[in-house]
Amino acid sequence: MNAADAEIPMVFARALASLRSAATRSGLLLREVPGPTRVAPYAVALTGSLLRPGADDDDLADGRFIVLHDPDGQADWQGTFRVVTLVRAEVDTDMGVDPLLNEVAWTWMTDSLADHVGDVDALGGTVTRVVSQTFGVMAERAGSVELEIRASWTPRTPDLGDHLLAWEQMLAAAAGVPRLPDGVSAIHRRR
């Protein structure tokens, strides 16, 4: 979001300002990275990691949040903006083999949008899970299941702060972090 404001359309500058002002949760580490340059004339990309409480380098989930803007619009987008997201998290092995996991993960995404944004246009995406099983000398180690949710949609307004918060909620859901009412904190177990 370091583009010179004089070089970008006002509507894109408004979108950037709304992202900057979004009040994200503590424990979400956001970084700006280069946006895709071939897809749209204007883009901003953020990577994010939802950190384990009390740990500075142990993430529960990570992903990307990308905003694309084409003043001329694109037919597939059904508008001039497009939000593209990725969420990745390792999930419990028992949960990871549940045949309904993909549908549940997609519901996390749609519920997050409903909670923060409301209606969007041209919503689409995929849910992928990768199940790893160990063998040989590694057989005693537990396998793992990685979940990946990719989604994109067209916002109905350039005010994108709530879209960032919806993505943050998707990260939390994939990480198994409970959604609590404002002012309520989770009590973490001692290990």
Rank of each mutant, 00 (worst) to 15 (best):
S152P: 00
W108T: 03
V127I: 12
A3H: 05
D70Y: 09
V137N: 14
D58Q: 13
V184H: 06
E168G: 03
L180G: 04
R191T: 10
V184G: 02
A151V: 10
T126P: 00
S152Y: 05
G63S: 05
Q78D: 14
D92E: 14
D72S: 14
V87H: 00
D111G: 02
D92L: 09
V91A: 04
I149E: 00
D56N: 14
N102H: 13
H116C: 06
L86H: 03
G136W: 07
M170P: 01
N2H: 05
E148N: 04
V44I: 15
I8Y: 03
M1E: 06
E7I: 04
L86D: 14
P178R: 06
R189E: 14
R25G: 10
D72F: 13
M138F: 11
A172M: 09
G125L: 01
H163N: 12
S185W: 04
L68M: 11
G124C: 05
T37R: 12
A173V: 04
L86Y: 03
V39M: 10
M170K: 00
E148I: 10
W108V: 08
G79T: 08
V131W: 11
I8S: 04
P53T: 09
R179G: 13
D119W: 01
P155A: 10
D111M: 10
A173G: 09
A89Y: 01
V145S: 00
W153C: 04
N102R: 08
I149R: 00
S21T: 15
I187W: 02
A186R: 08
D121E: 10
A4L: 12
T128W: 04
A15T: 03
R20M: 11
P178F: 08
L147N: 03
V104W: 13
I8M: 07
V97E: 15
P53G: 10
N2T: 13
S18C: 08
T85E: 08
Q169T: 15
W106Y: 09
I187D: 13
L30F: 09
V44L: 05
W106G: 03
I149P: 02
H163V: 02
W153T: 02
E148S: 14
R31N: 14
N2K: 00
R189I: 04
D70N: 15
L86R: 06
G143S: 12
D115C: 06
G54I: 11
A40L: 04
V33L: 13
S49T: 08
M138T: 11
A114Q: 11
Q74N: 12
A17W: 02
S21D: 11
R25K: 14
L123G: 04
T128G: 09
R14Q: 15
E146R: 02
G118V: 09
A105G: 06
P155D: 05
L180S: 05
E7C: 03
V11M: 10
R150Q: 09
A166S: 10
L28A: 12
V130S: 10
S21M: 07
L29Q: 13
W108L: 08
G54P: 11
D98S: 13
G183T: 06
P158M: 08
